[in-house]
C-alpha cells in the first residue's frame, strides 16, 4: 500500500515538474532566441517576463478551437492526444537520481528516484516508446486533409524512422561496455570507470545528432519548416490542440536530454569528485547534479537551434543512411573488438 502511495506521489512530482519545466522552457527558448538575435525578448508580463508561460497557457484555452470541415475528425483529435501520451510515458524508466538498496530511507525502505525502478530493460523501453511518437505526427498530417500537413507528416515519419536506426545502433557501444540495458546500471558503470563521452566519443556524436532529428529540432525541423510548409503537420490545428503538439515536442526534448546525460555524460556522477552511496545529502547532491546537466543539455539544444540552418531533405536522408548507419555499425564492431582484446 505504502508503495502505491509513494508511486502516486512520484508520478505527480514527475508530471508536475516536467509540465512546469515545459512551460518555462518555452520562455527560456524565446529568451535565448532573443539573445542570439540581439533582441530583448518577452519582458512585459511580470518581472523579466516570468509570468509569460501562465498567460500563454490561459490564452491557449481561450482561443477558438477550429476544426475544419474536411478533416477526419476522430483521428484529428486522437493525434495531439497520442503525441502527449507517448512523450510522457517515456519518463517511467528514467532515473532522476540514485536507484538501489542504499538510497535514503523513508517509510519502510529506501527511496528509488525512478517511477518504475524494477525494470531492467529501460533503454529498450525508451526506444520502443520513442518510436511510437511518430504516430502523433503522421496521424495529424494524414487526418488534416491539407496538402501542407500531409507533406509534413510524410517527411516527419520518414525522418524519424531513418534516424531511429543509427540512434539504436549508436548506443550499442555503451551497452557493450556496461553490459546492461538498465539506465541506472549504465550510470553506475560510468561512475566507476569513465563517462560515456570519453570511451564512446563517436557513439556520443551520432546519438546527439539523432536526438536532434528525433525531436524535430533544428537543423532537422523539416516536418515543420515554416517557410515551405506553413506549419507542417499542425497547420490545421488551433487553440489547445496546437499547444499539445508543442507540449509533446518539449517533453521529447526533455526525455532526450535526460538520455544524453544518462548514457554519455555520467548521469548523477559529478565531474572530478565521487559521491558516496548512502544518506539524504548524497541523494540530493546526485539529483542536483543530474538536473543541472540536463538543463545545460536543454540550453545546448536551444543554442543549436539559433546557430545552424536547416538541412535540405535529400541531404538529411543521405546523412542518416549513407553516413550515420555505417559509422554506428563500425563503432559497435570496433568497441566489441577492443573489449575482446582487453579481455585477453
Amino acid at each position: 500500500m505504502l508503495e502505491i502511495i509513494g508511486l502516486i506521489i512520484k508520478i505527480s512530482i514527475v508530471v508536475g515538474v516536467t509540465q512546469g519545466a515545459v512551460a518555462y522552457l518555452i520562455l527560456v527558448e524565446r529568451k535565448i532566441a532573443a539573445f542570439s538575435q540581439d533582441r530583448i525578448g518577452p519582458n512585459r508580463v511580470g518581472p523579466l517576463g516570468l509570468l509569460q508561460p501562465i498567460v500563454d497557457g490561459v490564452k491557449m484555452f481561450l482561443k477558438e478551437d477550429v476544426t475544419p470541415n474536411y478533416v477526419n475528425k476522430p483521428i484529428f483529435i486522437l493525434a495531439p492526444f497520442l503525441s502527449i501520451v507517448t512523450a510522457m510515458i517515456g519518463f517511467a524508466v528514467v532515473p532522476f537520481g540514485p536507484v538501489g538498496p542504499n538510497g535514503p530511507g523513508l517509510f519502510d525502505g529506501p527511496i528509488q528516484f525512478q517511477i518504475a525502478p524494477g525494470i531492467d530493460i529501460g533503454l529498450l523501453y525508451i526506444f520502443a516508446v520513442g518510436s511510437l511518437a511518430v504516430y502523433g505526427v503522421i496521424l495529424a498530417g494524414y487526418s488534416s486533409n491539407n496538402k501542407y500537413s500531409f507533406l509534413g507528416g510524410l517527411r516527419s515519419s520518414a525522418q524519424i524512422i531513418s534516424y531511429e536506426i543509427p540512434m539504436g545502433l549508436s548506443v550499442l557501444g555503451i551497452v557493450l561496455l556496461a553490459s546492461s540495458l538498465d539506465l541506472n546500471t549504465i550510470i553506475q558503470w560510468q561512475d566507476k570507470n569513465a563517462w560515456g563521452i570519453f570511451v564512446q566519443p563517436l557513439g556520443f556524436f551520432i546519438f546527439l545528432i539523432c536526438a536532434f532529428a528525433e525531436t524535430n529540432r533544428l537543423p532537422f525541423d523539416l516536418p515543420e519548416s515554416e517557410q515551405e510548409l506553413v506549419g507542417g503537420f499542425h497547420t490545421e490545428y488551433s487553440s489547445m490542440k496546437f499547444g499539445m503538439f508543442f507540449l509533446g515536442e518539449y517533453l521529447h526534448v526533455i526525455t532526450v536530454s535526460f538520455l544524453v546525460v544518462i548514457l554519455y555524460l555520467g548521469g548523477w556522477d559529478p565531474p572530478f569528485v565521487s559521491l558516496g552511496d548512502s544518506g539524504w545529502l548524497m541523494a540530493i547532491l546526485k539529483v542536483g547534479t543530474l538536473i543541472t546537466k540536463v538543463l545545460a543539455m536543454i540550453v545546448f539544444v536551444m543554442w543549436i537551434r539559433w546557430t545552424l540552418p536547416r538541412f535540405r531533405y535529400d541531404r538529411l536522408m543521405e546523412l542518416a543512411w549513407k553516413r550515420m548507419i555505417p559509422l554506428a555499425i563500425g563503432n559497435t564492431v570496433v568497441t566489441a573488438l577492443i573489449l575482446q582484446l582487453i579481455r585477453r
Binding site: 478551437d65 510522457m88 517511477i115 490542440k241 499539445m244
Partner: peptide, 24 residues
C-alpha cells in the same frame, strides 16, 4: 507502475481536450 503512468498520461492528455471543448 508503467501501466499507472500510462493512465495518468492519458488523463493528462484528455484533460485539455475536454477543457478546450468547454472553454473556447
Amino acid at each position: 507502475f508503467i501501466g499507472l503512468l500510462i493512465l495518468v498520461a492519458a488523463a493528462f492528455a484528455a484533460g485539455p481536450l475536454v477543457a478546450v471543448a468547454l472553454l473556447s
